[in-house]
Design a protein around this nucleic acid. Structure first.
Lengths: 296, 296
DNA sequence: TAAAAATACTCCATAGGTATTTTAT
DNA sequence: ATAAAATACCTATGGAGTATTTTTA
């Protein structure tokens, strides 16, 4: 019993005739006979009553007909589901991003992409660089945007955007009109730090170590769990902090915050498009990558 | 794309390996490769990522896998549905009977059959001989039990039971202790007749004509639409009637009615098992025919 | 180096065909 | 007599095999 034989069987039932069915499927009448015979030997019973004028299914044939229709319908459904997916118009896309990309880069992209392809469902996971990279490696996510490179050979990465981090102070701060300060001056101010896993804070520490600044002299006034809290902290004069400009563009535009660079400190970093080296990317994912590269 | 290829594909996905899958299905590894390749060219995309250690489905492959599982499950379902039906343990049986068989013969049979095969659903249609015979001819019913033969060459009939009709009088009637009366005597009594289409009444009229009794002398006190009404009529002294003994066995046993034969009148008739000559009978139907023949 | 999949090739089973016979209207 | 299905028989595609190479961990 295969789909082809079932298709022939269904055609005979619907045409009520072997020869009419054979014309319809562009087969010879004996070929149709052979296939029906094969089905009948397979099930060990008559499936069609050849009544002379017409051919009608037996009870067993009627049962098989019902199932056969279902299977053929399911085949059709499969075909069109695959076509839809491969025509990158339908399906789902699983992506991931570390804090900054997930908060400030990807949402815009997802919005634009959804407008272009409304039948694509996008699921975004937020996690730290390590989590996202591992998920991409394992195929749980098709694409990630993270703030650090990895040495894993199963991963390919591509620089997506350059991110400049700056010292951020409230509008009324004594430095609110300066464009830069020394690193030493920063250490004298109450500072809002980020938690251990934060990519932003890792970059800050790394750049300080690179500039041979004694990191132990850092005395954070408070440590906060996410970017938004830090911004709120600055606005409420808890302290100042070093943040991605991407994360504060809005507040800078409103004039409620001011950003300035820190002398001697290289606070630039990159966000990387992160993909599995060997796994095949879906057409939807390819399309999304195009979007990312084009619209940034 | 056929079921065999989908089966191979599913096996590779589940085994995460071409070679392990090939062992499982008892095929060579190159044969598995060929089939997967064929699926991939059919859908114009990669379905499996050969990652070296393991093989995992691509997004497209994952979609196909879902559908493939459904199709294979449906195939299994088809197989077992056919087996159940052919093992005459499950399914439905459509039968029909004219008034007396449907009222007094078939219900007993259906009860016994349902006990033996509880998973069989039986649907019984009641109609006159002509209706039931036509439905059997057209395959709407698989089996009928009717009170008359037909000349239709598409129908085969077999005598199932002999039915004796008798004159039925109430317990207190003047003939309540007689075993027979003359036909002439019957004509002098108030008689309950049956409607036009009734097989019972047709038989009564036919036997009278055969005995050269002047049928026009029949003056029914009342005409009733069904057997049960006639019995009630007799019990309430509306008149007497000629009925199938099969239909009054219960009342005779209770002693509320008395049956006697009519001299000169041959009131015997047969009920016939009625089947389509050319249509294949389901195993359930064959089994039911056995039941009918054995238990009568 | 070893294991997995791909490639190259050979073979035969079978799906397809045509010609014809049988069956039933 | 005619139309439909079955039978007989032939052909060629492709599904299955073995042997080998390529790839990658």
């Amino acid at each position: 019993m295969d789909l082809w034989q079932l298709h022939i069987f269904v055609s005979v039932v619907e045409q009520k005739s072997f020869s009419r069915a054979s014309e319809l499927i562009h087969l010879s009448q004996p070929t149709v006979s052979t296939h029906i015979k094969e089905l009948e030997t397979h099930f060990q019973c008559r499936l069609l009553d050849r009544l002379g004028k017409v051919t009608e299914p037996t009870r067993a044939g009627a049962i098989l007909y019902g199932y056969a229709k279902q299977m053929l319908a399911l085949k059709q459904e499969t075909q069109s589901a695959m076509l839809d997916f491969l025509g990158h118009t339908k399906g789902q896309l699983l992506i991931g991003g570390s804090t900054i990309p997930a908060g400030y880069i990807l949402p815009k992209m997802i919005g634009a992409f959804k407008t272009a392809f409304p039948d694509v469902s996008i699921f975004m996971t937020v996690g730290d660089t390590g989590q996202i990279t591992r998920a991409v490696k394992d195929g749980e996510l098709e694409l990630g945007v993270v703030g650090a490179r990895t040495s894993d050979p199963d991963i390919v990465q591509e620089k997506l955007v350059e991110d400049e981090m700056k010292l951020v102070v409230p509008a009324g701060h004594e430095w609110a009109h300066r464009t830069s300060v020394t690193c030493k001056a920063v250490l004298s101010q109450p500072l809002i730090a980020r938690e251990q896993g934060s990519g932003t804070w890792k970059t800050v520490i790394a750049s300080m170590e690179k500039a041979r600044v004694d990191v132990s002299r850092l005395a954070p006034a408070v440590t906060m769990g996410n970017c938004v809290s830090v911004i709120q902290g600055i606005l409420n004069n808890v302290g100042i902090s070093i943040l991605s400009t991407i994360a504060v563009t809005e507040e800078l535009a409103k004039g409620r915050l001011h950003a300035l660079s820190v002398e001697d400190l290289d606070l630039s970093r990159n966000f990387y498009l992160t993909l599995s080296r060997k796994r095949t990317r879906s057409p939807i994912c390819e399309k999304f990558i195009q979007f990312l590269k084009d619209q940034i």
